[in-house]
Design a protein around this nucleic acid. Structure first.
Lengths: 334, 334
DNA sequence: TTGAAAGCGGTACCAT
DNA sequence: ATGGTACCGCTTTCAA
């Protein structure tokens, strides 16, 4: 029987509902527009017919016609560690909560670059940047199209870009002072490549605190913000001159370093202090009990979503750079 | 000067490009359509003008007119543990790689439910389910709209739904046998609430293996797939009759349980074996060295993206249920 | 090879 | 309060 196998059934349109309810298409549109003139009984009848037919207004037509797209892109990068993935997940929930639908772009550079070109064909209300290396290029493409950008992991000095960023330098400077007060004098650092902006900022904060105490960095290693890279970096550093504190640019690497020191039987924090940055959930686990700097994801998400809303409301509002306060979390590894 | 402050500049359209290049709108459209009749010089001129003006075809209009939306929704649920977030991140990358743009829905039930109704106004090519509790309802809504569903964490017996799911029962049965061969006789289990489908399946697999050896489950605790819940569940179980193996429905809980046993000074695996499921990155860390069942994310993503492509190509293709093989990963906790 | 014109499915502005 | 109609920006006939 024809009809039982619906070959990719045509979407139900307002015209279908109008016919079924015996009204005009205009009335159907009004039924779905709160606060529009429409007889209450008629509205109910339309809504009933719509429900029965399974009608949903086609967002494409509504947007094309001039409506809000409610579409926000998140340029998420590779998300190599749990902090990045937690942020992405929280950003998604936060955007959903304010009625915005995130189009997420992730993966390696080549994939993300190709994806960007395609995603920019959709009318985005904002682009949220969380990637490392590609951010400037993405921001430039967005600027050309008038898509507002919110950079949330590094500060981008470009017109049309709002910035949300935690106080990387302050946090690491506080951490440096804590270590110095604790008697540490030979401090090693595990950072990241040039493209990891936050690593550079955090390093700077640490160096500032050291300088103020008449000290310099004892050693400098490069990681990749993953647990494994922290493990490897610690091994490299151990092969060099001795140190009594190991500051890692993020918690993942600190946990990797911690694992290596344990494997080698080096007591933490007695011989070497190990500290991180972010305060991921794992940092609090008894197995690690990591001293770190709390980088609050909930505040980040609130700030970003607020910025999205205000930017959408007032496209011409001046660009903002909002700093998020961090705080020391003293646990057992310093 | 007027023009310096562009009040939310109007998007450049094909008509603008046509005018700039001195051709018709049709020609502009053709210039962006591979394999269409158009003078080569003219095409280059159009492309040049487009680039100069910063033109991108508006996806809304193209889709409305009948083109592919390339939009796929991921109903991701709360993503309470790292495995869920890793899967979501991998799914995003995988979809990007095949030229599909994922609209992600996440967060708590109320938020997700509201989000769903809105996101369904977009013409989705597929809906990927990863949530726990809301899956049936979502699938029903999708069916009504003719949106194909791919369930990737539980098996949904509904028309129009493709299923991808790891062999939960087989994996846990293998694990059960491993423990029995290792001499364990009093096996406790930490599962999840009713809505965690995989917990029930994994429990069933374990029970089957135990029965085959003439054993039954010694104790049954309920977790929530988070590390903390594993920690708490282990504490509860320890208050009851003794056991020599603790099987957790996922790695996060196993790691939590492991932490508690360590806190209590109970030797693992000498006194109690602890095992999990999923083989998250953390399971391999020296700090945990967890015996578990490998649940391969890359295979899952490949299977899902393949299913998306084939479903889009042939909307009428028969529904499929694809099982993903799992394998024991023997480390140090059994 | 090219341009004109008809839709896609909504919304909003008309009169009525 | 209601129905008719123009239009959003694109793709795709159709005729030239």
């Amino acid at each position: 029987m024809a009809g039982t196998i619906r070959k990719s059934a045509r979407r139900v349109t307002a015209a279908d509902v109008a016919e079924a309810a015996g009204v005009s298409r205009s009335a159907v549109s009004r039924a779905f527009t709160p606060g529009s003139y429409l007889d209450d009984g008629k509205r109910r009848a339309i809504l009933r017919a719509a429900k029965r037919l399974g009608y949903r207004p086609n967002a494409m037509a509504a947007i094309l016609q001039g409506g809000a797209s409610d579409l926000v892109a998140i340029f998420a990068g590779e998300m190599p560690n749990d902090f990045d993935r937690e942020v992405a997940a929280a950003l998604v929930s936060g955007l959903n909560a304010i009625g915005k639908w995130p189009l997420v772009i992730g993966g390696d550079e080549a994939t993300a670059r190709r994806a960007l070109a395609n995603v920019l064909r959709y009318p985005l209300e904002a682009m949220i940047l969380r990637s490392g290396s590609l951010d400037e290029g993405v921001a430039k493409s967005c600027a050309k199209l008038g898509v507002p950008v919110i950079s949330s992991g590094r500060i981008l000095h470009m017109p049309g870009v709002d910035n949300v960023c935690c106080r990387n330098r302050d946090g690491m400077a506080d951490m440096g002072r804590l270590l110095i007060e604790g008697g540490r004098r030979r401090v090693a650092f595990v950072g990241g490549p040039e493209t990891f902006w936050s690593a550079g900022e955090r390093r700077l904060g640490l160096v500032t605190a050291l300088h103020a105490a008449g000290l310099t960095l004892s050693a400098d290693a490069m990681g990749a913000y993953t647990v494994q890279s922290g493990y490897d970096a610690a091994a490299d550093l151990l092969a060099g001159p001795p140190f009594d504190a190991l500051v890692c640019a993020n918690d993942a690497m600190a946990i990797g370093a911690l694992s290596l020191l344990r494997d080698r039987g080096i007591p933490v924090p007695e011989q070497i202090a190990v500290v991180g940055f972010d305060d991921i959930a794992m940092a609090a686990w008894p197995a690690f009990n990591l001293t770190t700097v709390r980088n609050p994801i909930d505040t980040l998400v609130e700030t970003v979503t607020d910025l999205v809303q205000r930017r959408v409301e007032t496209p011409t509002k001046p660009d903002e750079t909002i700093a998020i306060d961090v705080s020391l979390v003293c646990r057992g590894t310093h």
